[in-house]
Design a protein around this nucleic acid. Structure first.
Lengths: 205, 205, 205, 205
DNA sequence: CATGAATGAGCCTTCATTCAT
DNA sequence: AATGAATGAAGGCTCATTCAT
């Protein structure tokens, strides 16, 4: 399926180690935060020497890039079927919100790790490394969905960009809330958000 | 009033130095991010030796705590009059959103700095230091506003907590957007967000 | 006098530390060779923590640059008077050779350190850092001396460049020889080299 | 003949691998310098895994020892016929100088590699590994040649040791010069050096 | 009130070597 | 005969903090 995840040159064993390390990187980022997610601590979680990580990824930056790729992939894979099952823009939007929130609950560490990297990973010149790619792809997807709904007359009149950003932010907010209160009732949360944006996007008669 | 910020023992000059350092810490955090906001770099921006910071604040952690306090204070001070000028819950909500977005535009560095610390500052045991205090005070304030509106019949039926969080997140989203595109049209943004949450909170006839 | 050695911004104490560290770097390079001349080992010799070196020089590369500068300065200072005391090209050449060999004997570690750096210090792209500057200045000086002698008719017909290089190399050879046999009779060596190049440069009647 | 290079137990294929690796080690040393000549980089040049080198040589030190042996062998083999073709000491000296310089031009990498190792390879106690063996064999050979010439009355009166060293150093100097200017006119260089030492050794009437 | 000097812990990375396959 | 995987020591450097002045 995902031809990218097991490229030509990699053995099964190597792929397993890489997956293990990425997993531990995710857990470390989620549990201890970006600045504590050092090679040493990731290695410790994997019960492996630091050098093993270097051997498989060459660079800490590369590890984090892989974390981002992995989380993106998982999130996209998980969301796609839910989205494809719906036809009307309004239903797609509901599915999007509900799907994302559900993904958060099953992949909390993944999303927290992504968030940590997104917020903190910078290139040598000090510029953020991830913000563009992410902002582009995630918000844009929602924006297009909304614009389609406006074109079809299902949605009312509003800035698709601002609404898209609000949707995205509301979903990310669940994550931050989870960090404070891990026993949050996510079902209720999802329902409320769906209803909220239903009202906000609905065409006013 | 602000008993904490000018306690008995501090001279005027000392207070000026502290303010200068806090200001430079804010600028550094905003411009270079949490992990690059080191004592050395903050000192450099203040054209002062590292030791000056240590002398006045003892610890990096304390500097950041003061940054948080300062930004909170500014934000509250700036918002209060706008809020007090309104009477109905709906108007108060509009004023809240518009006021916050306006504050973002005039105090971008302040808010970015707050955000960096909020996301990254942890105590020695690895636990986040800021999330509770902040989540409590910011979201709770909105939540109470919304609950009051529901009690008075101005707002419809929704989870005040979830809506409060969505409001808060939407506003923070403007900040992240600003980081990507500094020339954002904030007036339009504010108008759209106000309208969005107007529709989302309005009592459905 | 040498305004460069105590520039404006440096205190007496700092200059002393710097001199001490440079001295230890020289000794380490001379005694243990380039690849063993690490920050840790230089610091150990100076009975100081690694950080002290970083504090005063920022970078290992800078330390080595200072070593080169220091040795160059010393060598030039030591040779100048000997050279100025002579008038004819032949005498100047003799003074040059004898002076350099004498400097070697009193500053063996300096010259060995210079040699180690000259041979091994490379920039990130892999290119040698010192060879040009050194080859230029040292060999050129001799070459000009020889060319002047040819122009005045004191010397015979030969490639000034090749002869200059042979002179330089013969002198450096003493250094390498010293490394093998530290109790070399340097006076004899100097006398022999002077005589050798006397014959090699003399105008053939 | 070369009992060491093809001992009983080595197959033809093994010998080929060893030669290939030695060749790549030489190229790496010459092109990138001693400290960059790591097992990994040598292996990369040979398009082979690091382990192959370990398998055939056990140790990096052994690889370098073999490099030295190989270069020595080549140099000796190349020089022998030129030397044997001459009869008088003066002609032998000329042949020696010219032959060595020519070897430099055809085997620049070999000589640079030898030089790098000679200057840098040390045993665990920090002592140079190569200087003795080399100084002994190379300089001694020239010294004997010169001494023979003095005994036969062909050469004048000078320290054979110092002259031998000057000869050796002048030749090595060509190498260093080549490193700076790869397009050197080596024929002229050889001619000049031959003439130089001709004058320096000639019996003064 | 301010500073320069120094430190030790920790960071990411490189590297020669070992080992199972 | 060859390889990939793993390791531990060491390297240069950053940083918050301590201390004497």
């Amino acid at each position: 399926m995902r031809s990218e995840s097991v490229p030509a040159g990699r053995t099964f064993l190597e792929e397993a180690r890489r997956a293990q390390i990425i997993g531990c990187a995710i857990d470390t980022l989620a549990a201890e935060g970006y600045s504590r997610a050092t090679m040493a601590r990731i290695a410790e979680r994997a019960r492996v020497s630091k050098s093993v990580i270097v051997y498989h990824f060459a660079t800490k930056e590369r590890v984090f890039e892989q974390v981002v790729a992995e989380v993106f992939q998982s999130a996209t894979d998980a969301l796609r079927p839910h989205l494809d099952a719906e036809t009307t823009p309004a239903d797609k939007l509901r599915a999007y919100i509900a799907g994302r929130v559900q993904f958060l609950s099953t992949h909390q560490a993944h999303m927290l790790a992504l968030f940590e990297i997104w917020m903190n990973l910078r290139s040598d010149d000090g510029a953020l490394r991830m913000s563009e790619a992410d902002a582009e792809s995630t918000v844009d997807a929602i924006e297009q969905l909304l614009a389609a709904g406006q074109a079809s007359g299902d949605f009312g009149d509003f800035s698709a960009r601002v609404m898209a950003m609000a949707v995205r932010q509301a979903i990310d907010g669940v994550l931050l809330q989870l960090r404070v209160d891990p026993h949050l009732d996510l079902d209720e949360y999802a329902r409320e958000l769906v209803a909220l944006f239903d009202r906000a996007t609905r065409r006013t008669s």
